[in-house]
């Protein structure tokens, strides 16, 4: 069984992002980028399935600029066998990525497409669902446990009320939640070995896919600053403040 894992290169979670002065977006100049943490969980899960003898090959794909190769190398160091970069400098929205994934799935014929439930930059939480719809495959989002046996996947999903267990026929799309696993470190020996694993670059322009954005960003602003707390003398003062200033009672 082959597994395809999709990974996104995003602003590192340690970076405090800041809105550009012209409000056109977030300033990404000189900012550290790394793999979307949910996608790391996706890779880890695929590699575990391979180590358990269930999967035979783990292929990792990313869509975006040349620099995504670094992200793919990290995935290879965690244990993916080979990588594909769908290369483009164009802005990619979830629908465009889903279309690219569909095209790659049609060519690679994986039994499972795994990716993070959302990317920590735009938090869209759409790509997995859209890819499933375009492919006509069943989907299980927010997975916190995944088992594969006899051509079927069983997924425990994190839903509002608690946990939901569903069974899917393969091929299927699974998106990962935080509790699915704790990804291993990419160790230095593995990073060195990953340099020699195959990485295939395919220009998106040659794929015949319409990746033009469908959504337009009007304005990006920072959330309002929290004003500092105050100390009140007694309960009466508190009630007065809540009533007159906060207007919550």
């Amino acid at each position: 069984m082959k597994i395809l894992v999709a990974v996104k290169r995003v602003v590192d979670f340690n970076v405090k992002v800041r809105v550009k002065a012209d409000q056109s977006g977030v300033d990404l100049a000189n900012v550290k980028m790394s793999m979307n943490p949910f996608d790391e969980i996706a890779i880890e899960e695929a590699v575990r399935l391979k180590e358990a003898g269930i999967a035979t090959e783990v292929v990792v794909i990313s869509a975006g600029p040349t620099q995504c190769q670094e992200t793919l190398r990290t995935a290879l160091a965690i244990g993916a066998d080979r990588a594909i970069l769908a290369e483009t400098d164009a802005e990619l929205q979830p629908l465009a990525v889903a279309k690219i994934l569909k095209a790659v799935c049609e060519k690679e014929q994986p039994q499972l497409l795994i990716m993070g439930k959302q990317a920590i930059d735009d938090d869209s939480n759409q790509t997995g669902q859209m890819a499933a719809a375009l492919l006509g495959w069943p989907q299980a989002t927010f997975a916190s446990k995944l088992t594969v046996a006899n051509g079927e996947a069983t997924v425990i999903r994190e839903v509002d009320g608690g946990l939901e267990t569903i069974a899917l026929t393969l091929p299927a799309v699974v998106t990962t939640d935080l509790r699915l696993n704790e990804p291993r470190y990419a160790t230095l020996p593995n990073i060195m070995k990953a340099k020699k694993k195959p990485l295939d670059v395919q220009p998106v322009a040659a794929m015949g896919i319409d990746v033009a954005p469908r959504l337009k960003t009007l304005k990006v602003t920072e959330p309002p600053k929290r004003s500092g707390g105050i100390k009140v003398a007694d309960v009466a003062a508190l009630v007065a403040k809540l009533k007159n200033e906060a207007k919550v009672i």
Binding site: D12, N14, V15, A29, N30, V31, K32, Y185
Partner: peptide, 10 residues
């Protein structure tokens, strides 16, 4: 451990 420490942009 690892890459801990600041992440200075520039």
């Amino acid at each position: 451990e690892g890459g801990g420490g600041p992440n200075y942009p520039a």
